[in-house]
Each structure stands twice: as C-alpha cells, then as structure tokens.
Design a protein around this nucleic acid. Sequence first.
DNA 1: GTCCGCATGTAACTTGTTACATGATTTA
DNA 2: TAAATCATGTAACAAGTTACATGCGGAC
Lengths: 181, 181
Amino acid sequence: MALEHAILVSLDERSGSGYELARRFEKSIGFFWAATHQQIYRTLKRMVELGWVTGHEVAQDGRPDKKVYEVADAGRAELARWLASPGEPETIRHDLSVKVRGASLGDPAALVDEVARHRDLHAERLDVYLAVEKKDFPDPSALSGRRLHQHLVLRGGIRAERALVEWCDEVLVALREDDRR
Amino acid sequence: MALEHAILVSLDERSGSGYELARRFEKSIGFFWAATHQQIYRTLKRMVELGWVTGHEVAQDGRPDKKVYEVADAGRAELARWLASPGEPETIRHDLSVKVRGASLGDPAALVDEVARHRDLHAERLDVYLAVEKKDFPDPSALSGRRLHQHLVLRGGIRAERALVEWCDEVLVALREDDRR
DNA sequence: GTCCGCATGTAACTTGTTACATGATTTA
DNA sequence: TAAATCATGTAACAAGTTACATGCGGAC
C-alpha cells in the first residue's frame, strides 16, 4: 500500500491537517496518487496508532480547529524502508481501452464522442502540467534534491498525458475512417 | 465498474470458462485490465444472476469439467449502454512516482536501482507488445472492425510503455547526475 | 513421486467509493 | 439568503488482494 507513503512524502514536504492533505491530493500529489478526504482521515488515524505521524490540535479564529500532523521518526524510517523495497509496476485498469476493444458492440458515433471527450480532458491536464512546469521550474537543468524530484514526477505526468492525447487522436482518426466505409 | 464489461467484451470475442478468462486476463485483455481468478469467478457468478451471461457445464475427458459462459442478450444490451455512457479518466496511482518524489528521504542508490528495475520491466513489456503487433497485425492500414479495435488498444499499450521507459531513462540520468554532486 | 497445468471455489482482510452528518464563517 | 470554503468525521457498501482448499492427469 502506498497511500500511507504518499501521505508521509507530502507531510515531510510540509506538515498539515487532513483537510489540507485532501486538497493537496486534488492537485500536486494527486497528479500521481488519487485519494479522497475519507481515505485520508481514516489512514491518518491508523498512522497515528502506528506511531508514524504525530497530530496536535491547533485552534484558529474564525475557522474550525484543525489537527496538524507531522512525520515522526518511525514514519521516516518506514518511508526509507519502503523506498528501498522493490515494488510491482502498476496494475493497469483502463476503461477507455475496454470501450475501444468492445466498439463493435455499441453505437460507433457515441464511442467517437467518448474518445474525443477523453482526448480533451487529457489535453487540459497536459496544459495544466506544462503551465506548472513553466512557472515553477523555469530552469530545469539547475535543479537538485527535492526540487529536482518534484520536477521529475511532473515530467512523468507530462509524458503520460501527452501519450494519452496522441493515442486518442490515433483512435479518433482510425474510428472515423472505419465508419466512413 | 468495468470488470463486468471487460469480461463481456472478452466473452463476446470468444466464449470460455472462468479459468480461460483468467488466462486471458494474464495477457491480451490483461494488458489494459488486471483481474485475478477469484475476482473473475465471483463476478461471473453475479453476472449469471443479472442475466448478462449464461453458463453451462462441459464435460471433458482427461480434464476437470468446466463451465463455459456466453454473453446473453441482456449482457449485450448492458455493454451497449455502458459504451455510450461517459466515464471518468482513470484515477492515477503510481507508486514509482511517490518513491521518486520522496527520494530525499531514503538511500539514493537503492532508488536508482528500483527505477532501473522498472525501466527494464517496461522495456520487456514494450518488446512483447511490439512482437504481438508484428505477428498479429502486419498490415495495420488494412484493418477494420474488431481487428482494428484490438490493434488500437495494443497501440495504446505500446505508447504507454514507451512513455514509461523514456521517463525512467530521464529519471535515471537526472538522479545519477544529482548523486555525482 | 513431485511438480505443473487444468479447473473451481471459500474466507478473511484491506482498500476504495458513495452517501450522509454537522457547524461556523465568508463571499456573492 | 444562498452558496462556497474550512474542517472533521461515521456508516454502508463495492472492489481488490492474499491465503487456503481440493482433485485429476500428465510430464520429468
């Protein structure tokens, strides 16, 4: 399991509450690891029990109190252990591919629309990633340490989204061509 | 959920037993949708109850009996409905990215090894896909219908694995460069 | 005689999803 | 005054993983 580890990485970059973590999982960290607030609260609770993080309540004025979590030594040790341990490549579950493979069993035009929709969604994500890169990493060759690692992960996102956009385009051309016959 | 739908697509291409499906999910279909035999047996059971597939026992000599499943009309209708319905792009969960992002907290050399391992795994997969393409789809421009759709999905796998290999290479160069300083 | 392939399953557990619940403050 | 943001959670359910269980036939 890596949600714990994703949280540890995020908390190590900056301590924060469950709510703040949930927000990060909607962007930065969320670009490569998805999680909802329910999962995060549940997991943080377990991580406190395991001694991987410590939480303390912080009073705020004009806002509800929050619990801010920090990585404990045991958490850092667990992260180091996990980083060095071999993991399997991700198990793939790609809905859209299932749909394309089953195309003959449904309405061709509807499938084309669906692929086009995904194409646009991926193109949007790609634009977001490219904008982040331009803004936050204007001189990539000068990076080192944490900043370098963050940039490398972003590069992965850019490559993945670009590949998906190009694949959708290839599929669209082929499906439309096939329909015309 | 799309396991049902992946099974429907696979059974539509050819009827088969739970065991046979499990094998297909280790290759062809498994290239874009992972599932274990336990999931498949469980799901087939539910699909029979839903009337999406029908199963009948087939006696074999020298081998255990098997239950062969076929897609029913209700199953084909469900597939058509699902194909036309909009779906979300996949939620990403990429372990290796979490590890790269947390690189500063562990042993740099161990991470390099881990990335290199993944690079080789993805390169192997890529080779498999390219071999399948060469063997099964020697003349892609002549394809239509089912065969075209199968080829398009394979193209997606090729693009994805290629992107991953290239990303791993980029990460390796950058991490090794960073270590040297 | 031991391991591999064929063939089907149960049980226990961990993860992930969806819906619901509460309540204060700020913004439109 | 209605909606959005901040903030934390419970409960029920769906899906995925891991371990265990059984038994025949053929290959080595």
